[in-house]
Design a protein around this nucleic acid. Structure first.
Length: 350
RNA sequence: UUUCCUAUCGCUGG
């Protein structure tokens, strides 16, 4: 069991969730009993894979086997609520946690903080922060970064920067998460100049940029239409020993789509595949939208077919991208068919 | 420290 737990941990850390699930089955076929750690691991895996009922199903199974949940279990469950913004569920779990004698700690609070931030409940997030201070759990780097991310998402980049300054005042060192989050926040708010200031501050503070940081910069330059600068970033991080990841590729596809650069778009997609990357759901959605913006519904729909053939399930964004692509060309009848398809699937049109 | 929390990519208007 210990060995399997190690293997499942490795798969989970590398995003190989299907492999983790297979290992979980395999160990039981071999007659090994999953323990609390195994269940905690798998709850986390199901949490990112969804759907939610799979998570609760596993939790029930765990209790039926007489394995008592611990703090890790509850923290994992609360964290899993983020996927579908299940704030009510999270509160419920939080209460159960206390009722069975597990003590919520700073990780629990940070998980709640993130859930509220990501689901647009800024007021609740601030309440949680105050609760933390009242309960003697001082906010740490993760707490601040979580809030900075929430502000950035809400377009409140000034507040985000102010919070970073608060960190400095309190002697909490901003890290690469802090700066990357701020970069993206400024970019989303349409303040690339501010973003560059942050990037400079980051380097002056001796904080080393990583792939996430570079990906943010690529998006920023791409949206500004500064492709030479964008490619410079691309080359720079490669020479620093980083390899583009799927986010980098998706970002470049998105940028060329937004600028209607059909040739470059196809070229980058080719390079991405040549580099051995398998398109994920976001890649497909990006491509559908990108080809449509380049004026090629045909290619957009080919991509959609390829996605279905690959076994990936379209989500709301995918369907909306397809609907947009068809509508741009006035293909109403096809669009209506997709809308029906959507209702038949797991997606409610918004 | 075999398990929990934070950053980077996708859909809509003009």
């Amino acid at each position: 069991t210990y060995a399997y737990n190690l293997l499942i941990t490795a798969c989970s850390k590398n995003g190989k969730y299907d492999d983790a699930t297979l290992l979980f089955q395999e160990m039981q076929e071999e007659g090994l009993e999953p323990d609390r750690v195994t269940y905690n691991l798998m709850l986390s895996v199901y949490g990112v894979m969804g759907p939610w009922h799979r998570v609760t199903g596993l939790f029930d199974e765990m209790e039926n086997r007489g394995i008592r949940p611990d703090e890790y279990t509850y923290d994992t469950l609360i964290s899993a609520c983020r996927r579908d913004s299940l704030c009510g569920e999270a509160i419920h779990i939080f209460n159960e946690m206390k009722a069975v004698g597990c003590k919520p700690d700073r990780v629990t609070d940070n998980s709640l903080l993130d859930l509220y931030g990501k689901s647009g409940h800024g007021d609740e997030a601030l309440n949680t922060l105050q609760e933390m201070e009242k309960n003697g759990y001082l906010p740490n780097t993760v707490s601040y970064n979580t809030l900075i991310s929430a502000y950035g998402r809400a377009g409140l980049y000034c507040e985000a920067i102010a919070l970073k300054d608060t960190m400095l005042e309190k002697g909490i060192r901003p890290d690469v998460f802090t700066y990357s989050s701020l970069l993206s926040g400024c970019e989303k708010a349409g303040r690339p100049g501010k973003a560059m200031e942050i990037f400079k501050e980051m380097k002056d503070a001796g904080c080393t940029p990583n792939l996430c940081t570079y990906n943010s910069l690529i998006v920023m330059y791409g949206k500004k239409g500064e492709f030479e600068e964008m490619m410079k970033v691309f080359d720079e991080f490669r020479s620093n020993g980083y390899t583009p990841d799927i986010v980098t590729w998706n970002a470049m596809l998105s940028v060329f789509g937004q600028n209607g650069m059909h040739v470059e778009l196809s070229q980058v997609f080719k390079e991405m595949k040549a580099a051995g990357f398998v398109p994920n759901r976001e890649t497909f959605t990006t491509l559908i939208c990108a080809y449509s913006r380049c004026g090629s519904v045909e290619q957009a729909m080919e991509i959609y077919s390829a996605m279905l053939k690959s076994g990936l399930c379209p989500d709301l964004s995918t369907y909306n991208a397809v609907l947009t692509a068809l509508s741009r060309e006035g293909l109403w009848r096809q669009a209506e068919k997709v809308l029906i398809e959507m209702r038949g699937g797991c997606c409610k049109p918004n």
